[in-house]
Amino acid sequence: MNKQKITLAVTGLNNTDNPGAGVPFIRGIKESEAFDARIIGLVYENLEPGIYMENLCDRIFQIPYPSSGSDELIERIENIHQQEHIDVLIPNLDAELFSFMKNEGRLRSRGIQTFLPNLKQFQEREKDKLPEFGKKYDIKVPGSINMSTLGQIKDLEDKYNYPVMIKGQFYDAYVAHNEEQAKQAFHTIASKWGFPVIAQEFVKGTEVNVIALGDGKGNTIAAVPMRKQYITDKGKAWGGITLADEKMMELTRSIISKTKWKGGMELELIKTNGGEYYLIEINPRVPAWVYLAVGAGQNIPEALVKLALGMDVQAMTKYKIGKMFVRYSYDAIVDLEKFAAISMNKEI
């Protein structure tokens, strides 16, 4: 089969202890039978490990953080596009998604395709809106309070028993077992991530996750459920195993069908001892463990790129159960020239 030549730009090459999905996404594309992809790595920092990994990216470009302004970011992408003719752009980091979603039309008009959720889908699943999301789509979610003042810790004590989860709007979560710990977590999160700080009812059970891909018309193109077997102190999976759980699959299909989700997603669920499932978070992009899905038989990166290019994609319903991933750290020895090039020229 002749592979289609494409130029694919990918972010999230930060394969650190808080990894982005860029590197595993590229691994999936390199195993694709449909694409012969020229890979453009887009990085924010000059020490993102993906820059230095052999045989991963053909070119690397540094891009400005979205916090410095969407226009600056998109102009840089357009500038890179003039040199590299990007066919598809896959953003993999939460913080940049809003900028790329907002500029989807502008990028498309330049010939750069994306496949992202729309703003409504993106915003209604935000952590501080989870109770409304649960109500609207008839999904069990833990109760929560959005806090903007320390005084509201009293409200949460009236409503829930300790422990409670104290979460940032975008990132970070702490278990608080008493008022002191809740106050400490409130301050830590507010100073790092701003307001609201979310106090979420603690649901006892096992955390399980699903990676999925929606076609934007209500169809589930891919879905693989997983349980984390080894979790780092940042709460990241360092090992995981695919599960045979039809209830998780049903829940995933139901969410994608009701929301008409477009793009990759990760559902974070708590399975209680009574066999009930509580949705605790929806991440609006593929997670860093996306390569487990590839290994289990569903090449989600390939399917996502096909959808971005407007190709027909058959829903994948089978995957290997009991497939595991075990992450590891590895010291790459790097010549100074490469570091100097990305630091000084902002490209390699």
Binding site: T206, V208, M226, R227, Q229, I241, L243, A244, D245, I321, G322
Partner: peptide
């Protein structure tokens, strides 16, 4: 060899 795996719970 005595290894038991529960594919629903992992």
């Amino acid at each position: 060899n005595g290894f038991v795996f529960n594919s629903r719970t992992g």
